[in-house]
Nucleic acid binder design. Sequence first.
DNA 1: TGTCCAAACTCTTATATAAAAGTTATAGGT
DNA 2: ACCTATAACTTTTATATAAGAGTTTGGACA
Lengths: 263, 263
Amino acid sequence: MTDSNDGNGGTGAATASVSSSSGRAGMQLGYTPLYMQVRQQLLDKLISGEWQPGTLLPSEQQLSVQMGVSQGTVRKALDALSADRIVVRHQGRGTFVAEHDQRRTLFQFFKIADDKGDRVLPETVYSQLKRAEPSASESRLLGLRPKGDVWRIVRHRALKGRVMLSEQIVLSADRFPGLDVHVPLPNNIYELYERHFVTTVTRAAEQLRAVAASAEDADVLGCSEHMPVLQIDRQAFALNGALVELRRSRCLTEQFHYASDLR
Amino acid sequence: MTDSNDGNGGTGAATASVSSSSGRAGMQLGYTPLYMQVRQQLLDKLISGEWQPGTLLPSEQQLSVQMGVSQGTVRKALDALSADRIVVRHQGRGTFVAEHDQRRTLFQFFKIADDKGDRVLPETVYSQLKRAEPSASESRLLGLRPKGDVWRIVRHRALKGRVMLSEQIVLSADRFPGLDVHVPLPNNIYELYERHFVTTVTRAAEQLRAVAASAEDADVLGCSEHMPVLQIDRQAFALNGALVELRRSRCLTEQFHYASDLR
DNA sequence: TGTCCAAACTCTTATATAAAAGTTATAGGT
DNA sequence: ACCTATAACTTTTATATAAGAGTTTGGACA
């Protein structure tokens, strides 16, 4: 902690053991509040895998003693992590590392809903995995080493017995070693990343376009060629901010739609 | 304030003048924290139009005295409103009622981006307004009185000189009396709602589908018939939660796309 | 007139304290 | 075995206090 940014208010004599990120005093740009430093420290434990998903964290009291800050500061840090859905807090029970259970997948990462507006998770009816060479852009986006391979996953997914989504997923083979051992892949693939590859997807960006179904799309989705389908390109990011998954989905939107909340 | 839900912690003798919503003590279900009651009281002033968009609110100190709660409780209420983008807070300046300026429209309500990922607000190249009878579903969704009319707005919007979006907007004629006086309508239509009709849009829900361009779409957008276009259905909600606008957009997605953040 | 500094104001951060609300485990009764 | 009360824990709410950070304003001064 720098002298200028000590930030010890109040009357207590808390000897904060939290160190500032950039050492010198008299920092001109930026200034990191104590609770954000605490947030980052907690986040580091999650990134390292020291606290696995589902783990019960120490209580606010315990953490405040461990880290040498007040309970209120720990609370602000945990609230910030909670807002990013990185931890989940339950009054009376404690604070847990968020898991990729069905509900989270449904509400955070799956935006397809039926005409009543209910989110429905489709079942995987076909799945294929193979190792391949990445394209130039894939290699760049995923930050692969030269000659680094990728996994390519193709899945067909159905709702109410009707195949309505075809998706291609691209992953770094280095980050997901031995992924082929887990074939057949589970429907909830982010849970797999998290359980076996210390990779927690916390955030994703999607780009949507209306395109004409290719001959292959038509075959898979059981529609005519050139039928309008919704193309969804997704980039998924891990706890440390790294882009870890590329995905392209093509989706029929006759009985279903993509739901987006603007708030 | 009920006895059971007094919630006066601390050592102070604050005589909270905030009244509980449901009177009897021993309430079984629900319990509204004091800061949420304060939030609602502040929100009521916004809904009534007593505090217009752009207004500087009283300071936390002043509000805490006025409402008979602590400054920290006012802070929690204002933070909650800030999270919903209903007010905007600036350190050193104060708390302001959020306005529908260009930036807000761009980042909260317009999700079209170019291939670099930059949000771009399209210009209106054609605009038409007429009074008409609502369909049954429009009447129901907008909560119109029997025989209540609607306004229908048709707009064509262009990016970089290219018409790429055609939209139809439906509004209650009762809620927007004399809307035709404001023809030609400004590009930022939510600013118009807010300035002249005490209607602040705070939240919207969108449903996206890929559909084939109709003959009319093809004419407007300058594409061939049956070309895949992105159809966006929007319901926009006001401060009090009422559905105040229905909108259907059809959008070319060759050079642009709909950007959705999953977090 | 123009510049600089200090005061006064805002929100923000940080602390401490206390009580309420909700959960879980334990002990004791029927 | 089952239910109940209780104790011990958790997060959540509410308060008070103090100092930091950022903005605006007004006055001293050149």
